[in-house]
Nucleic acid binder design. Structure first.
Lengths: 342, 342
DNA sequence: TATATTTGTTTCAACGTTTGAACAAAAATA
DNA sequence: TATTTTTGTTCAAACGTTGAAACAAATATA
């Protein structure tokens, strides 16, 4: 059971009595190699169970064919389906994907970036941690000339390709829907406004209220990490107001779920007393009772476009193609939690 | 903005007028290199923003410091927290982690294994796809002498280290609890019995029923993929029986959730009419109404042990340490869906 | 003082693959 | 037949790092 010596290109060459170089060329289907040698090489490669040494070829070619993907946390449908799609598109083109989770921590994110750079990835696709404000590590990626694509959680200041949805418009969709249901005091459980997407959702929320002639009340806008516990905390806070809202628009489904729990614990009818809308259309939104209205972001589409944009950058690294800000459409999925009218 | 030539060990050597070899040794803190050179090298490395070329060193050392992790799907708390822990333990020791999702597909799993082997990972930690019955690709890993650790979804026949919980005993816990609640006809929405863990849960279920003197009825045991839709389908099937069960034990939380939906749609009271228990303790089990009783598998612990076992194998590759079958304890989390007695 | 040991460095080959240049043989063209 | 072109291969260097062995200088031991 001794560790079997791995078959190399040289072994194949020896068997056939030709040079390693010829074998290499045969394997990569070089035009100047005869069909006879090519088939012979392929045959022997098969027999000896030859597996190309990726490290050697990557070193020589200066290209690892590895792509890093950084996400806050894989444990949501949104991110895991994006990854799935990214893998699908990139594998197709011979790239492998390394996934790193930041766990919403800036420090972990930095470590992940370092790890990816160390592994010599050819490109990075990332969605930033909530915590991240300093962009130094992302600048580091850029300064190394490694293509960087951001999705979902992006940052304008970085000046890199970005793929996401129109958060501003999404908020409009949400508010419009709630107004149609007769809501007049709509609270917003917001994400931190230093993150672009949440800032835009807040902006959309404000502008939409204004558009519909509703007053903007600062006490109804509360920023957080949007976890379940944040939703709970903030919902309690909102219930404590002497003038309660009649609708809550959460910028994330988990926060919406936390809010729903608190509402139910307080025997407040949803949507009759307080309507509720979330964001991201996590699968559970359709599973809880009442089901939660949410915004579908078409994650597969985001993953696909992000991967394709990266491929484009990898194929033409020097070309000064104009920066892409790809804004995909979002869709409001209306469910029981906000449907006052039959 | 021309692609900056990367700094190499050679550049540092040139600056200091010493050999690349000396620099290499200085960087790896070789005892024979003087402290003077060491600090000088470190200084220059810093100045030139030197980043070691992992590919070159991996090639030379025959070790990539990369570990592959294969999971069915990241989008569950169970798997994502295991990954988090694995990353934590392995990063600590200088390893980076590549995550591959099989999406429960045998074909995708094979592709992932090939990709990981191609990337020259030093070891693989995997949980098998539901679909997987043929073990040829896992044998391939073994035959290459690459350490393989299985967790959760394992296979006895492979003869490799395994980390998981005591599924057999877990089923006993579940049945015992249901019997205590007065249930007499307990159905089992099972996983496919070709997978070890599900086989053991079924075995535990049968033996526990016997132990409590309850009859085993084959029509109450139905195997599936345990997705929400499977839970729905099977629950409908169970409701169609002329003699309905008074409790349902699902071998997965998603299946349990599907069952719960169908029960609610049919206005069957849970737990009064039919009690329900799931498995894995996914976060949503505590979030739905009624909250679902489930089995907590201590995923961080599984991740930790799996990673540590791999490290052990990597450290002493030849040592014929006896195979580890690490069976960790599981815990029944009792919630509303099964609590008939106050 | 002669010899042995330690210290700090260099030399050199290797890891496995790739690629441009060189070359010989075969085929095409004059 | 002489020359050019094409075809199929080999040669040699390179990618960046590493580590065993060689070596010289400095230090310790006899």
């Amino acid at each position: 059971m001794a560790t079997k010596k791995k078959t190399t290109i040289k072994d194949i060459a020896n068997v056939l009595g030709i040079t390693p170089s010829a074998v290499s060329k045969a394997l990569s289907n070089h035009p100047r190699i005869s069909d006879k040698t090519k088939t012979a090489v392929l045959q022997i490669a098969q027999n000896l169970n030859y597996q190309p040494n990726h490290l050697a070829s990557a070193l020589r070619k200066g290209k690892s064919n590895l792509v890093g993907v950084i996400i806050p946390k894989a444990n949501s449908h949104f991110f895991s389906s994006i990854i799935e799609k990214i893998e699908e598109v990139l594998n197709e083109k011979g790239y492998n994907v390394i996934i790193a989770q930041s766990n919403e921590s800036y420090k972990k994110e930095c470590k992940s970036i370092d790890a990816l750079l160390y592994t010599q990835v050819d490109g990075i696709i990332a969605s930033m941690a909530n915590e991240t404000v300093k962009l130094d590590y992302y600048e580091k990626i850029k300064s190394k000339g490694i293509p960087l694509i951001l999705f979902d959680r992006g940052e304008n200041d970085l000046n890199v390709d970005y793929v996401g949805i129109d958060d501003y418009l999404s908020s409009h969709l949400v508010i419009e829907h709630l107004v149609e249901q007769g809501c007049k005091r709509i609270a917003h459980i917001a994400g931190f406004s230093h993150t672009r997407i949440y800032k835009n959702r807040i902006r959309g929320y404000r502008d939409a209220l204004e558009k519909f002639g509703l007053p903007i009340e600062e006490s109804l806008i509360i920023e957080s990490n949007l976890r379940i516990e944040d939703g709970r905390r903030i919902m309690n806070q909102l219930l404590g107001l002497k003038n309660r809202p009649d609708a809550v628009y959460a910028a994330g489904d988990y926060a919406a779920l936390g809010a729903l729990q608190v509402l139910q614990e307080n025997h407040i009818n949803v949507p009759e007393d307080i309507a509720l809308v979330g964001f991201t259309n996590e699968p559970f939104t359709s599973l809880v009772t009442p089901s939660i209205t949410s915004v579908e972001q078409h994650s597969e589409q985001i993953g696909k476009v992000a991967a394709e944009t990266l491929l484009m950058r990898l194929d033409s690294p020097n070309e000064k193609v104009s920066l892409n800000k790809l804004i995909l459409p979002a869709e409001l999925i209306i469910r029981s939690s906000s449907k006052k009218l039959a």
